[in-house]
């Protein structure tokens, strides 16, 4: 599974309260949540971002609450992936569960500029910066996480698994 996208670069400790503020937590629709994505950090983000773009962030992206509305909002606004120096535990898991790849890759962050294009090979765990040509290696996903992303998230993945386990299924 490969992704190529233009980069929007942000700093450290981007928490879930700014990815999607609590005042929008009564929403559940992906597109509606997407309209407010990152608005307390960068109010112009939703007007700039294009489908297929990639968020590039510093340390501990997605810290704070367990709200899955955060990766859903990023998906809703069209982000194809998030690359960060590091992720908060719950965000990383939520992100993969909703089918949004989240890749920990400090050197990719440190050397990229806003507007660069990154090529991400999830199976190999590589992030290539097309401007510099540098190939950055991250820890590849375990196979079952790749399978979850291939299925489009944990729910479709589990649905198939439960159907297969059912007698006569």
């Amino acid at each position: 599974m490969n992704i190529q996208g233009r980069v929007w670069k942000y700093g450290d400790d981007i928490d879930t309260d700014v990815i999607i503020p609590a005042r929008y937590l009564t929403l559940t629709d992906e597109n509606e949540l997407g309209k407010h994505c990152l608005e307390d950090l960068d109010p112009s983000f939703v007007s700039k971002v294009q489908p297929g773009d990639v968020i590039l962030a510093g340390n501990l992206f997605g810290c704070g609450s367990s709200r899955e509305h955060a990766p859903i909002a990023l998906k809703g606004v069209g982000c194809a992936a998030v690359v960060a120096r590091s992720f908060a535990r719950i965000f990383l898991r939520n992100s993969i569960n909703v089918g949004l790849p989240a890749i920990e890759c400090p050197s990719a962050y440190d050397t990229a500029q806003e507007g660069d294009v990154l090529e991400i090979d999830l199976a190999a765990g590589t992030v290539t910066n097309t401007r510099t040509g540098a190939v950055h290696q991250s820890a590849p996903y375990p196979q079952f996480m790749l399978d979850v992303l291939d299925a489009g998230g944990l729910v479709p993945f589990t649905r198939e698994k439960l159907a297969a386990e059912r007698p006569g299924g």
């Binding site: 367990s66 709200r67 899955e68 990766p71 719950i90 898991r93 939520n94 569960n97 909703v98 079952f144 998230g153 944990l154 729910v155 589990t158 439960l162």
Partner: peptide, 18 residues
């Protein structure tokens, strides 16, 4: 431990998680 809604959904159905 804290998890998101999708993990919660799977857990409500199966009583398990990874």
């Amino acid at each position: 431990s804290g998890f998101g809604s999708t993990d919660c959904a799977i857990a409500m159905a199966t009583g398990k998680t990874w």
